[in-house]
């Protein structure tokens, strides 16, 4: 396992991205280590999702360097990201309602033998993964359309464990969930960390962020605006960084 001191799992340096006239990100630095949940917070349009989508291969940066375990990489598509063992739970979930739990877990990465699906093995793995996450899904053959919002979210998170990932990106995993369902999802996130993965958590909800993350990175108007140790920072300090009441120079960043 890659412990502190070695190269970080993911390191992004001086990342910039423009959409036409809009500067979504400019000179952003970001780092994730194994065994670590890093929260990415900021106001709407601060560039959180843009940054996350670069990690998942949906978007490519205009400038900047991305390194995985010290090696410079280019994450050109979601399948490339999958090959690099990066898994993503997208904000809009990216699940197919008409397919069952197993089919959704393996979507795009089906176990195959001569082009044929290996349903038995996939169901077995699905059951193992759901058990690992302590998820309460009635059956691995239930179609997604028959599941509740919370169950769908746990399927989306379970998806990330297929293909032995080392880095998981969660984009607003608790939006639109009830309190009980949110608690369940937060438990899932803690389990991901316990499994030794690096986790990027994007959320609007400060309570959730403070509950599970080790480190909180604030973005404001597409720039870094502070890095905080979750256990030693008050709610107000983070809020101040998000709203821009305080401005933290990149040079002052101190981690762990």
């Amino acid at each position: 396992m890659n412990e502190r001191g070695g190269a970080p799992l993911l390191s992004m340096r001086q990342i910039s991205k423009r959409f036409g006239a809009v500067e979504a990100l400019s000179g952003v630095d970001f780092e994730v280590r194994a065994h670590e949940v890093v929260a990415l917070v900021g106001d709407n349009g601060a560039g959180k999702s843009t940054l996350a989508r670069m990690v998942s291969g949906v978007l490519q940066p205009d400038a900047g360097i991305i390194e995985i375990e010290g090696q410079q990489v280019s994450i050109s598509s979601p399948s490339v990201a999958h090959e690099m063992r990066i898994a993503t739970v997208f904000q809009d979930l990216a699940l197919a309602d008409n397919l069952d739990v197993t089919a959704n877990l393996f979507l795009g990465h089906e176990l195959r033998e001569n082009g044929m699906l290996q349903d038995g093995r996939m169901e077995q793995i699905t059951r193992d993964v759901l058990a690992k996450l302590a998820s309460r899904i009635p059956s691995v053959r239930t179609p997604l359309s028959a599941l509740s919002a919370g169950q769908r979210q746990s399927v989306a998170i379970a998806r990330t464990l297929i293909g032995d990932p080392r880095l998981v990106v969660l984009d607003e995993p608790t939006a639109a969930l009830s309190a009980v369902q949110t608690a369940e999802v937060l438990t899932h996130i803690e389990r991901l960390r316990d499994l030794g993965l690096g986790v990027i958590l994007i959320s609007h909800n400060m309570t959730d962020v403070r509950a599970v993350s080790d480190r909180i990175e604030v973005l404001r108007h597409g720039r870094n605006n502070g890095s905080f140790d979750a256990s030693r920072t008050s709610f107000e300090e983070i809020l101040a960084a998000i709203t821009g009441a305080t401005h933290v120079e990149p040079g002052l960043r101190s981690v762990g």
Binding site: L93, A94, L95, A96, D97, N98, L99, A103, L107
Partner: peptide, 15 residues
């Protein structure tokens, strides 16, 4: 089935 069910999901999943 995946493309017909949710084109976006299929695309993001690498189909």
């Amino acid at each position: 089935y995946a493309i017909g069910g949710n084109l976006n999901a299929a695309q993001l999943s690498g189909v």
